[in-house]
Every structure is written in C-alpha cells, then in structure tokens.
Amino acid sequence: MNFTNMDIISMKDFSRDMIDHILNVAEELEPVARGEKRSNIFSNVLLSLLFFEPSTRTRMSFESAIIRGGGNVLNLGSLEASSISKGETLADTIRVVEGYADAIVLRHPKEGAARMAAEYSSVPIINAGDGAGQHPTQTLLDLYTIKRESVLDGVKIAIAGDLKYGRTAHSLCYALSLYGAEINLVSPDSLQMPEEIVNDLRGQNINVYQTSVMEEVIEDIDVLYATRIQKERFPDVTEYEKVAASLKITPGLLDKAKIDLKVMHPLPRVNEIDASIDNTNHACYFKQSFYGVPVRMALLSLVMGRLK
C-alpha cells in the first residue's frame, strides 16, 4: 500500500485495508505522540496549516503531531492581515503555499475546497474540514478510539444527537459500515439521519435502528457516541431543552449500560454529557481527543513518505 503524496480529502476515498493500515501505524506512533519516545520522523519537514475558519483542537493536534516528530509548522496567521482579505482566490493561495511547505492542512468554509486545492497542489492536501462537508481525520480518530478502547469489528454503537446536520455522524456511519457495525441512531424526529444515508447503510447489509429514546438501546451497546445539539436548530428554547434533556447522558442512564460501555464525543460538549461521568471508566472523550495526535501523525508520515 502506497500513501506517498496521497491527498486526504474524504472517507469515501478509503478502503477498509487502507484504514486498517493507518490505524496500525497510529498505534506504532502512540508512544511518540504521548511524548514518551523521541522521534525524528518529521526531521526537515515543514507543515503548512491553512485555517480559514477557527479551530482549536484540530489545529493544535496537527501541530502537536508534527512537532513531536521533530518537524515544524507554518501558520497562516490572522486572516484580516493576510492577502485573503484582499480577495485572493484559494487556488492562488494554494499555489503559493505549496512552495513553502511539504504538506498543507486546510480548513475552509466552502464544501469541496480541499478537493479543489488538491487539483492545484503538488504537495499533499489534508482536509481538516470543508464547510458542512468532510472531516476525514476526525472520522479516523473516532475509529482509532473505538479500536483502542472497545472493539471495532462488529461494534454495537449508538450515535446520538443532531444526526440530520452533523457531518461527524454521517462520515462515521459510512466508515463503520466497512466494519460490519450495528448502528443505533438516537435523535429527535426533526433531526433524524437523512434517509439516503440510512438506505445506503442498509444496502451494505448494516443493521440500522432508529429511535428517539436512549433507554431503548443503552443496555445493548459497546459505544455511545454523543454529538452536539445546537439550539439554533429548534423553533424555540423549550423544545430544545426538552430534547437536550431526553438525550443527556447521566449516571442514571449509564447504570443500565454494559460495564465496559465507552462514551465518546467529538467535543466541545455543551450539555450532552453530565460532568459526573468524567471520572468513570465510561468516559472516553478526552482520550479520544488525544488520539487525534497519533492518527494525524500516522497520516502525515504516510503521505509524506516517511513511513510505508
């Protein structure tokens, strides 16, 4: 399998074998990501971070990944001060920046921006979120978390929250279909997973169960993946509060769960998970955000040809 110079744009570009390979490399690199083992895997590497939208976790975890491996980052800096505010096209920006760096990590407000950037760039483009589109490194770190903390093959998972608009949930479902997962979708009726995605999953022989009641699925699952519920999606505050309360993960709910159930969340959370869960064995979300580092390290080392 050769990843050298490959762009990382969308989960649809990955086969199960490719994902398995990335996750294996991530596991090898985990001690480096933790700072327990020194490595020069990124010596002489310059990674450019082009974030046209705010990000803390994704940007910092890419920085952590490259610096822990002995490389350096070039940041875009403030948007107002840059030539972008003077109206430069992304196509031009990319052709300039590719001359400065060995790979480009891009977050952009327009869907498809990363795919376009890849057409213009001779160095690998890594999509760190294109509007409401794809965010493949998030999905890969989610898979890695499930693999490390639970079991990926045939996992019984519940995904809860805003499943209509949440790109994290869409992309994760697609990826889990490669692993024969059993998928329970928990959301209010107004925020259900789009029908075409559910049909797609069923077409892959995946068992999909849809409900709005968490209690219906909690006893049976290995992983509970909570996603953010945005106030703006609801006609009024009372409706929002009703739904938020019904999906909230509380100690009472987890009493009914398997003892080794893992709770995940892409963060930042608002009210989806009661803080008293944090110190239990169920809580997995801070580990999940750490796992972004080895996974991004693995991707960077593969696309830049530092590892095979």
């Binding site: 096209t89 196509a91 327009k110 869907e111 498809g112 376009m116 057409e119 509007g131």
Partner: peptide, 13 residues
C-alpha cells in the same frame, strides 16, 4: 445544487 460548493464560488474551476 449546493450554493456553498467551491465550484459555485469565484475560484477558477
């Protein structure tokens, strides 16, 4: 169909 698609912006594609 997507108004927020990069192909509907002023990029040269």
């Amino acid at each position: 169909i997507n108004p927020n698609c990069i192909s509907n912006s002023r990029e040269p594609i």
